[in-house]
């Protein structure tokens, strides 16, 4: 028992073992990500060409492009955001500015929470039965957009709510004190101050929409053609009531048919979009934090 000195540490092999384990587990995420990126990049890059993103599949011309799917994805993103942003922002404004804390707010927050926990396949089934069959919209971009609205509603509501919470109360009191009405105060003071948070929510939603597949399979269907313009461009609007497969759906279908070259090319495009969106959210949330500084 000579080594009772404080300076002599007892060797603890178990500690070192656990330390090692922690490092291994943490490196797993990086390894997995690196594998995914290199493999998808390696297999996908060779199939991506200008032709690939500007043509539609055609047996006569011998093309396998995904232009139609890109357009469909854009349609779905725009349509969904057009419906979901007003609803989500409106809900957040109600929860934060109008409602008194109590049962009603708890109920709304609980259901919003529940909504974000429901898997997309359930939304798909619901969208198919409710929007597709009951409302007779069938397989269409509109059905898909309405279904996705339900999925991203919690995202937008929560982000807007967080942003509204960071707006100092003195802004509200100041505006109301000099005679602005409540709606005028919300419109001119609150919403502009909360804008970075709202935009973050929107960008996150775009990411969710781009990556969504299970909810779209039975709602938006799987068309891959470009919208027909019609005489006055009215075809662009008619497209909303026609089926259209997004990039993810096309990826799934080509995977099913073992057309792996197309699949990897789409996967690469999806990864690039998703990573771009990730960077954008980072940038936006940094900006939000800057604004929060006194």
């Amino acid at each position: 028992m000579q080594n009772k000195s404080l300076y002599k540490k007892k060797p603890r092999p178990l500690d070192w073992f656990i330390h090692g384990l922690i490092y291994i587990c943490a490196s797993l995420s990086i390894i997995i990500l690196a594998c995914i990126v290199t493999y998808v990049g390696y297999r996908g890059i060779s199939s991506i060409s200008w032709n690939f993103i500007t043509t539609v599949p055609s047996a006569i011309k011998g093309t396998v492009g995904i232009a139609g799917n890109i357009i469909n994805t854009l349609y779905i993103i725009i349509l969904t955001l057009l419906i979901a942003i007003p609803l989500g922002v409106g809900a957040a404004i109600y929860l934060n500015e109008y409602a008194k804390p109590g049962r009603v707010v708890r109920l709304i927050e609980f259901t919003t929470e529940t909504l974000s926990g429901i898997p997309s396949i359930i939304f798909g089934l619901f969208g198919y039965v409710f929007f597709g069959v009951t409302l007779k919209l069938g397989y269409s971009i509109l059905t898909g957009g309405l279904t996705l609205t339900l999925i991203i509603l919690p995202l937008i509501t929560r982000n807007t709510q967080e942003a509204l919470k960071t707006v100092p109360d003195s802004y509200r009191k100041g505006a109301l004190g000099i005679g602005a009405s409540k709606w005028y105060m919300i419109r001119t003071i609150l919403l502009p101050s909360a804008m970075p948070g709202i935009v973050t929510g929107i960008v996150l939603s775009v990411g969710r929409i781009v990556g969504e597949s299970a909810a779209l399979l039975f709602t938006a269907g799987s068309g891959y053609l470009l919208p027909k313009l019609g005489d006055y461009g009215e075809g662009l609007f008619k497209k909303i009531l026609q089926p259209g497969g997004t990039l993810t759906i096309e990826l799934y279908l080509s995977m099913e048919k073992a057309k792996y070259d197309t699949a990897f090319a789409i996967a690469l495009i999806l990864l690039i979009i998703v990573f771009g969106i990730n960077l954008l959210t980072k940038y936006l949330s940094n900006k939000l934090n800057l604004d929060k500084r006194p």
């Binding site: 990556g211 995977m255 990897f264 990573f275």
Partner: peptide, 24 residues
């Protein structure tokens, strides 16, 4: 390095995971 990697993993669409599952 690890934190952004985790965030990126969260964003990868599920069909891409499926594709890699089949082929790797």
């Amino acid at each position: 390095i690890v934190k952004p990697a985790v965030e990126l993993l969260a964003g990868i669409p599920s069909v891409v995971y499926g594709l890699l599952g089949i082929l790797i």
